[in-house]
Protein backbone atom coordinates (compact mmCIF):
# COMPACT_ATOMS: atom_id res chain seq x y z
CA UNK A 1 0.00 0.00 0.00
CA UNK A 2 1.21 3.46 -0.75
CA UNK A 3 1.77 5.94 2.03
CA UNK A 4 -1.65 7.25 2.85
CA UNK A 5 -2.11 10.93 2.61
CA UNK A 6 -2.95 13.06 5.57
CA UNK A 7 -6.34 14.68 5.96
CA UNK A 8 -7.34 17.39 8.38
CA UNK A 9 -10.61 17.01 10.19
CA UNK A 10 -12.27 18.49 13.24
CA UNK A 11 -13.83 16.35 15.92
CA UNK A 12 -15.90 18.20 18.50
CA UNK A 13 -14.14 21.37 17.54
CA UNK A 14 -10.67 19.90 17.97
CA UNK A 15 -8.38 19.78 14.94
CA UNK A 16 -7.36 16.20 14.32
CA UNK A 17 -4.96 14.80 11.78
CA UNK A 18 -6.12 11.59 10.20
CA UNK A 19 -5.11 9.44 7.29
CA UNK A 20 -7.02 8.72 4.17
CA UNK A 21 -8.73 5.40 4.71
CA UNK A 22 -9.36 6.12 8.38
CA UNK A 23 -12.87 5.79 9.60
CA UNK A 24 -14.19 8.53 11.83
CA UNK A 25 -13.92 6.05 14.68
CA UNK A 26 -10.29 5.19 14.08
CA UNK A 27 -9.37 8.83 13.71
CA UNK A 28 -11.20 9.67 16.92
CA UNK A 29 -9.54 6.81 18.77
CA UNK A 30 -6.12 7.99 17.77
CA UNK A 31 -7.01 11.41 19.08
CA UNK A 32 -8.32 9.85 22.30
CA UNK A 33 -11.85 11.01 21.65
CA UNK A 34 -14.40 8.54 22.93
CA UNK A 35 -17.26 7.32 20.77
CA UNK A 36 -19.40 4.50 22.17
CA UNK A 37 -19.54 1.31 20.10
CA UNK A 38 -21.18 -2.07 20.41
CA UNK A 39 -21.13 -4.08 17.20
CA UNK A 40 -17.69 -2.77 16.32
CA UNK A 41 -14.65 -4.73 17.44
CA UNK A 42 -11.07 -3.84 16.66
CA UNK A 43 -9.73 -6.41 14.24
CA UNK A 44 -13.07 -7.41 12.75
CA UNK A 45 -14.67 -5.84 9.71
CA UNK A 46 -17.09 -3.03 10.50
CA UNK A 47 -20.77 -3.90 10.51
CA UNK A 48 -22.66 -0.67 11.09
CA UNK A 49 -25.63 -2.37 12.72
CA UNK A 50 -25.94 -1.16 16.31
CA UNK A 51 -25.93 2.56 15.44
CA UNK A 52 -24.41 3.44 18.80
CA UNK A 53 -21.43 5.08 17.17
CA UNK A 54 -23.46 7.47 15.04
CA UNK A 55 -22.11 10.99 14.75
CA UNK A 56 -23.17 14.21 13.09
CA UNK A 57 -21.21 15.67 10.21
CA UNK A 58 -21.54 19.40 9.63
CA UNK A 59 -23.36 20.23 6.45
CA UNK A 60 -25.40 17.03 6.37
CA UNK A 61 -28.73 16.39 8.06
CA UNK A 62 -27.91 12.68 8.10
CA UNK A 63 -26.22 10.72 10.84
CA UNK A 64 -23.17 8.62 10.10
CA UNK A 65 -21.95 5.47 11.82
CA UNK A 66 -18.39 6.38 12.74
CA UNK A 67 -17.20 2.77 12.51
CA UNK A 68 -17.85 2.62 8.76
CA UNK A 69 -17.69 6.20 7.53
CA UNK A 70 -14.36 7.19 6.01
CA UNK A 71 -12.94 10.60 6.88
CA UNK A 72 -12.47 13.21 4.22
CA UNK A 73 -10.56 16.44 4.28
CA UNK A 74 -12.25 19.29 6.06
CA UNK A 75 -14.88 17.08 7.71
CA UNK A 76 -16.32 18.55 10.89
CA UNK A 77 -17.65 15.89 13.20
CA UNK A 78 -19.78 16.14 16.31
CA UNK A 79 -19.73 13.05 18.50
CA UNK A 80 -21.82 14.04 21.46
CA UNK A 81 -24.77 16.32 20.75
CA UNK A 82 -27.96 16.14 22.71
CA UNK A 83 -29.68 14.42 19.77
CA UNK A 84 -26.95 11.79 19.62
CA UNK A 85 -27.12 11.13 23.35
CA UNK A 86 -30.88 10.80 23.16
CA UNK A 87 -30.66 8.43 20.20
CA UNK A 88 -27.98 6.29 21.83
CA UNK A 89 -30.09 5.99 24.92
CA UNK A 90 -33.07 4.98 22.82
CA UNK A 91 -30.95 2.42 20.97
CA UNK A 92 -29.81 0.80 24.18
CA UNK A 93 -33.32 0.74 25.59
CA UNK A 94 -34.61 -0.85 22.41
CA UNK A 95 -31.93 -3.53 22.43
CA UNK A 96 -32.77 -4.34 26.04
CA UNK A 97 -36.46 -4.55 25.23
CA UNK A 98 -36.09 -6.80 22.19
CA UNK A 99 -35.24 -9.87 24.25
CA UNK A 100 -35.97 -10.79 27.84
CA UNK A 101 -32.68 -9.54 29.26
CA UNK A 102 -32.79 -10.38 32.93
CA UNK A 103 -29.39 -9.36 34.14
CA UNK A 104 -29.82 -10.65 37.67
CA UNK A 105 -29.86 -14.24 36.49
CA UNK A 106 -27.53 -13.85 33.51
CA UNK A 107 -24.14 -15.47 33.17
CA UNK A 108 -22.77 -12.19 31.87
CA UNK A 109 -23.98 -10.09 34.77
CA UNK A 110 -21.14 -7.71 35.56
CA UNK A 111 -19.19 -8.54 32.41
CA UNK A 112 -21.62 -7.41 29.78
CA UNK A 113 -20.98 -4.61 27.33
CA UNK A 114 -24.68 -3.94 26.90
CA UNK A 115 -25.21 -3.70 30.63
CA UNK A 116 -22.21 -1.38 30.95
CA UNK A 117 -23.44 0.87 28.16
CA UNK A 118 -26.92 1.02 29.63
CA UNK A 119 -25.36 2.16 32.88
CA UNK A 120 -23.14 4.67 31.16
CA UNK A 121 -26.09 6.26 29.38
CA UNK A 122 -28.43 6.14 32.33
CA UNK A 123 -30.98 3.83 30.73
CA UNK A 124 -32.79 3.48 34.03
CA UNK A 125 -35.97 1.97 32.62
CA UNK A 126 -37.49 0.69 29.40
CA UNK A 127 -39.86 3.05 27.69
CA UNK A 128 -41.43 0.42 25.47
CA UNK A 129 -42.91 -2.91 26.39
CA UNK A 130 -40.66 -5.90 26.10
CA UNK A 131 -41.06 -8.77 23.68
CA UNK A 132 -41.76 -11.95 25.56
CA UNK A 133 -41.12 -14.55 22.90
CA UNK A 134 -39.06 -17.44 24.19
CA UNK A 135 -36.03 -18.13 22.06
CA UNK A 136 -33.98 -21.26 21.71
CA UNK A 137 -31.01 -22.16 23.84
CA UNK A 138 -28.57 -24.55 22.20
CA UNK A 139 -26.90 -26.62 24.90
CA UNK A 140 -25.75 -29.46 22.69
CA UNK A 141 -22.09 -28.55 22.35
CA UNK A 142 -19.67 -29.96 24.91
CA UNK A 143 -18.87 -26.59 26.38
CA UNK A 144 -20.18 -23.81 24.13
CA UNK A 145 -23.67 -22.45 24.67
CA UNK A 146 -25.73 -20.06 22.62
CA UNK A 147 -28.73 -18.51 24.31
CA UNK A 148 -30.73 -16.62 21.73
CA UNK A 149 -32.72 -14.95 24.47
CA UNK A 150 -29.78 -12.64 25.01
CA UNK A 151 -28.39 -12.33 21.49
CA UNK A 152 -28.40 -8.74 20.30
CA UNK A 153 -27.67 -9.71 16.68
CA UNK A 154 -24.44 -7.73 16.50
CA UNK A 155 -22.84 -10.39 14.26
CA UNK A 156 -19.51 -10.18 16.06
CA UNK A 157 -19.45 -13.97 16.45
CA UNK A 158 -20.20 -14.43 12.76
CA UNK A 159 -17.41 -12.12 11.74
CA UNK A 160 -14.91 -13.61 14.18
CA UNK A 161 -15.68 -17.12 13.04
CA UNK A 162 -15.38 -16.11 9.40
CA UNK A 163 -12.61 -13.56 9.45
CA UNK A 164 -10.37 -14.76 12.28
CA UNK A 165 -10.96 -18.49 12.61
CA UNK A 166 -11.71 -18.68 8.90
CA UNK A 167 -14.36 -21.37 9.00
CA UNK A 168 -17.63 -19.42 8.71
CA UNK A 169 -19.63 -21.80 10.83
CA UNK A 170 -21.97 -19.10 12.00
CA UNK A 171 -24.34 -16.99 9.98
CA UNK A 172 -27.70 -15.29 10.27
CA UNK A 173 -31.01 -16.77 9.22
CA UNK A 174 -34.38 -15.09 8.64
CA UNK A 175 -34.66 -11.34 8.74
CA UNK A 176 -35.93 -8.47 10.85
CA UNK A 177 -37.20 -9.40 14.26
CA UNK A 178 -36.89 -13.08 13.38
CA UNK A 179 -33.17 -12.88 12.63
CA UNK A 180 -31.19 -15.55 14.40
CA UNK A 181 -27.58 -16.66 14.51
CA UNK A 182 -27.26 -20.19 13.17
CA UNK A 183 -24.63 -22.89 13.25
CA UNK A 184 -23.88 -24.38 9.83
CA UNK A 185 -27.18 -24.94 8.04
CA UNK A 186 -29.20 -24.20 11.17
CA UNK A 187 -28.15 -27.30 13.03
CA UNK A 188 -27.43 -28.15 16.63
CA UNK A 189 -24.00 -27.01 17.59
CA UNK A 190 -22.98 -30.53 18.52
CA UNK A 191 -23.62 -31.79 15.02
CA UNK A 192 -21.56 -29.09 13.35
CA UNK A 193 -18.71 -30.58 11.38
CA UNK A 194 -17.12 -27.26 10.54
CA UNK A 195 -16.84 -25.80 14.05
CA UNK A 196 -13.33 -26.14 15.42
CA UNK A 197 -14.51 -25.36 18.95
CA UNK A 198 -12.03 -22.53 19.09
CA UNK A 199 -14.26 -20.39 21.34
CA UNK A 200 -13.56 -17.21 19.46
CA UNK A 201 -17.26 -16.56 19.11
CA UNK A 202 -17.65 -16.73 22.87
CA UNK A 203 -14.76 -14.41 23.39
CA UNK A 204 -16.11 -11.68 21.17
CA UNK A 205 -19.79 -11.93 22.10
CA UNK A 206 -20.46 -8.69 23.95
CA UNK A 207 -23.29 -10.12 26.01
CA UNK A 208 -24.29 -13.37 27.65
CA UNK A 209 -25.45 -15.04 24.44
CA UNK A 210 -22.49 -17.23 23.55
CA UNK A 211 -20.44 -18.44 26.46
CA UNK A 212 -18.32 -21.29 27.69
CA UNK A 213 -20.07 -23.41 30.23
CA UNK A 214 -18.61 -23.54 33.73
CA UNK A 215 -16.07 -20.83 32.97
CA UNK A 216 -16.04 -17.49 34.74
CA UNK A 217 -17.05 -14.76 32.41
CA UNK A 218 -14.05 -12.61 33.09
CA UNK A 219 -11.95 -15.37 31.53
CA UNK A 220 -14.05 -15.81 28.43
CA UNK A 221 -14.77 -12.31 27.28
CA UNK A 222 -11.89 -10.71 25.53
CA UNK A 223 -12.42 -7.51 23.62
CA UNK A 224 -8.82 -7.40 22.49
CA UNK A 225 -8.75 -10.90 21.09
CA UNK A 226 -9.44 -10.10 17.46
CA UNK A 227 -6.93 -7.29 17.41
CA UNK A 228 -4.32 -9.50 19.05
CA UNK A 229 -4.67 -12.23 16.51
CA UNK A 230 -4.48 -9.81 13.64
CA UNK A 231 -1.35 -8.19 15.00
CA UNK A 232 0.27 -11.63 15.35
CA UNK A 233 -0.54 -12.30 11.74
CA UNK A 234 1.12 -9.07 10.82
CA UNK A 235 -2.05 -7.64 9.36
Amino acid sequence: MSVSSVVKIKIDGVEVTAYEGDTILSAAKRASIYIPTLCYLDGLSSYGGCRLCIVEVKGSPKLFPSCTTPVSNGMEIITNSERLRKFRKLTLGLILSEKPHICSICVANGHCELQDLAKEFGVDHLRVEREWTAHKIDLTHDFLVIDHNRCILCARCIRACDEIEGVHVLDMKMRGKDSQVIVDMDEDWASSRSCTSCRKCARVCPVGAIYVRDKPFSEIKDKEMAKFILSRRGL
Binding site: L96, P100, I102, S104, I105, H125, L126, R130, W132, T133
Partner: peptide, 19 residues
Protein backbone atom coordinates in the same frame (compact mmCIF):
# COMPACT_ATOMS: atom_id res chain seq x y z
CA UNK B 1 -40.34 5.71 42.64
CA UNK B 2 -39.80 2.23 41.21
CA UNK B 3 -37.00 0.56 43.10
CA UNK B 4 -35.17 -2.52 41.90
CA UNK B 5 -35.24 -4.45 38.65
CA UNK B 6 -38.53 -6.20 39.42
CA UNK B 7 -40.34 -2.88 39.67
CA UNK B 8 -38.34 -1.32 36.85
CA UNK B 9 -38.24 -4.06 34.20
CA UNK B 10 -40.17 -6.94 35.69
CA UNK B 11 -36.98 -8.93 36.24
CA UNK B 12 -37.43 -12.62 37.12
CA UNK B 13 -41.09 -12.18 37.90
CA UNK B 14 -41.66 -11.77 34.19
CA UNK B 15 -39.87 -14.98 33.25
CA UNK B 16 -43.26 -16.66 33.09
CA UNK B 17 -44.39 -14.24 30.41
CA UNK B 18 -42.58 -16.21 27.76
CA UNK B 19 -44.60 -19.33 28.53
Amino acid sequence: IAIGDCAVTGNMVTLRNAL
